[in-house]
Each structure stands twice: as C-alpha cells, then as structure tokens.
Amino acid sequence: MIESHIKEGLSKAYAIAVAHKAGMNFARPDFDYGFDGIFRDIQNVNGRYCDNGWSIDIQLKSTINVLYEKDCIKYDLEAKNYNDLVATEVGAPRMLVLFVLPKDQDQWLNITEDGTILKNCAWWYSLKGMEPTKNANTVRVSIPKEQLLTEVSLRQIMNKVKTGEDI
C-alpha cells in the first residue's frame, strides 16, 4: 500500500476512535466532494439511542510535515481545501482535523499484548469566515496547540454546534 493511503487510514482510525469515545458516530460520504468524514451526535431518549441530526463535516489531513512553534502547529493546507473550509453559507459546521504522525514510519502504530499505540495525535481548526485564497497551491494555517482533538474537546465542540455557537 502506498504511504499516503496508510497515513489516511491511520487518521481515519484516530477520528473514528475519538468519535466513538465521545459517544458519536463517524460517517464517511460515499463520494469525495471535499470532506472526508462527518461527526454525528447521538442522544439517549427514554433508553433508546438515536442520531439527533447534529453534525460536523471534517476535512481530514494526515502528515509528518508540520512546524511546531510555542503555541501553534503550522501546516501548509491545499488551497482548494482551505477554500472549502472558509465557506460560511453551509448547513453543517466544517473543520480541519490534522493528524500528525512521527517522521519515523516504524513509530506510527505499535501493537502488543499490552496495548495499541497510534502516534501522534490530531488537532482541530475551524476556518469559517476567513478570506478565501487565490493561491494556486497551499495556504499556511496556524492551529493553536490547545485545540487537540480528544473525546472531551469533540463533545465540547458539538455542544457549541448544538447551541448555535461558532466553533
């Protein structure tokens, strides 16, 4: 399998694991129209769990190429993806999920009897309302390090969506 597909699969595994730990579904669109997945909220109504219609569309990226600075991670996002993410006239909120892997491929996944370790982690970032770019190739985005995607942060993000707040 080519390296980019391995990275993509590991990033999806991370997003799925975070969603499920947060008590949500992770859906994958049948066709690629700019988004790789959807976090879908689940509610418990009288002991029956069902989808409540709240969702977040995600553009999932996986890379070993980021710049770590004191308070942020800098990543060169493809211009087409950037422009998809800045749109404001959309039904569901959109966010970038950037999964960062170690440079050494042997460290990406380690499975033993004692546990499974998937390195490293992902950060989330909403670009809603930023100016579209005319760049042909990439746009450098700066993601605050505090925006680590965990089951707790995903639940907090979804709660904002449900109350009409921007993420």
Rank of each mutant, 00 (worst) to 15 (best):
residue 23 G to Q: 04
residue 26 F to Y: 11
residue 26 F to C: 09
residue 27 A to N: 11
residue 28 R to D: 11
residue 28 R to V: 15
residue 30 D to M: 15
residue 31 F to Q: 15
residue 31 F to A: 15
residue 32 D to T: 10
residue 32 D to N: 14
residue 33 Y to S: 10
residue 33 Y to D: 12
residue 34 G to A: 06
residue 34 G to W: 03
residue 35 F to S: 06
residue 35 F to P: 09
residue 36 D to W: 00
residue 36 D to A: 05
residue 36 D to S: 05
residue 37 G to D: 02
residue 37 G to C: 06
residue 38 I to C: 10
residue 38 I to G: 10
residue 38 I to L: 13
residue 40 R to F: 05
residue 41 D to K: 10
residue 42 I to H: 03
residue 42 I to T: 07
residue 43 Q to F: 05
residue 43 Q to G: 13
residue 43 Q to A: 11
residue 45 V to T: 09
residue 45 V to L: 09
residue 46 N to A: 11
residue 48 R to Q: 15
residue 48 R to H: 15
residue 49 Y to V: 12
residue 51 D to W: 07
residue 52 N to I: 00
residue 52 N to P: 02
residue 52 N to Y: 07
residue 53 G to V: 01
residue 53 G to Y: 01
residue 53 G to E: 03
residue 53 G to F: 03
residue 54 W to V: 06
residue 54 W to E: 05
residue 54 W to A: 11
residue 54 W to G: 08
residue 54 W to R: 10
residue 55 S to P: 00
residue 56 I to N: 03
residue 56 I to T: 06
residue 57 D to P: 02
residue 57 D to K: 14
residue 57 D to F: 07
residue 58 I to E: 01
residue 61 K to L: 07
residue 62 S to M: 05
residue 63 T to P: 04
residue 63 T to L: 01
residue 64 I to Q: 09
residue 66 V to D: 02
residue 67 L to M: 12
residue 68 Y to E: 12
residue 69 E to S: 15
residue 69 E to F: 01
residue 71 D to S: 10
residue 72 C to R: 10
residue 72 C to E: 13
residue 72 C to I: 04
residue 74 K to I: 06
residue 76 D to P: 08
residue 76 D to L: 07
residue 76 D to S: 13
residue 77 L to C: 03
residue 77 L to D: 05
residue 78 E to K: 15
residue 78 E to N: 15
residue 80 K to I: 13
residue 82 Y to C: 11
residue 82 Y to W: 14
residue 83 N to M: 09
residue 84 D to R: 12
residue 84 D to A: 13
residue 84 D to Q: 14
residue 84 D to L: 14
residue 85 L to Q: 08
residue 85 L to E: 06
residue 87 A to H: 07
residue 89 E to V: 08
residue 89 E to D: 15
residue 90 V to P: 08
residue 91 G to S: 12
residue 91 G to N: 14
residue 92 A to I: 06
residue 92 A to Y: 09
residue 93 P to K: 02
residue 94 R to W: 01
residue 94 R to C: 09
residue 94 R to D: 12
residue 94 R to A: 09
residue 96 L to W: 06
residue 97 V to F: 02
residue 97 V to E: 07
residue 97 V to S: 08
residue 98 L to E: 04
residue 98 L to C: 01
residue 99 F to H: 13
residue 99 F to A: 13
residue 100 V to G: 03
residue 102 P to E: 09
residue 102 P to M: 09
residue 103 K to R: 12
residue 104 D to Q: 13
residue 104 D to C: 11
residue 105 Q to S: 15
residue 107 Q to N: 15
residue 108 W to H: 12
residue 108 W to L: 07
residue 109 L to R: 06
residue 110 N to S: 14
residue 112 T to E: 09
residue 114 D to R: 14
residue 115 G to Y: 03
residue 115 G to I: 06
residue 116 T to L: 08
residue 118 L to K: 04
residue 119 K to S: 14
residue 119 K to A: 14
residue 120 N to E: 13
residue 121 C to Q: 11
residue 121 C to H: 10
residue 123 W to C: 02
residue 123 W to Y: 02
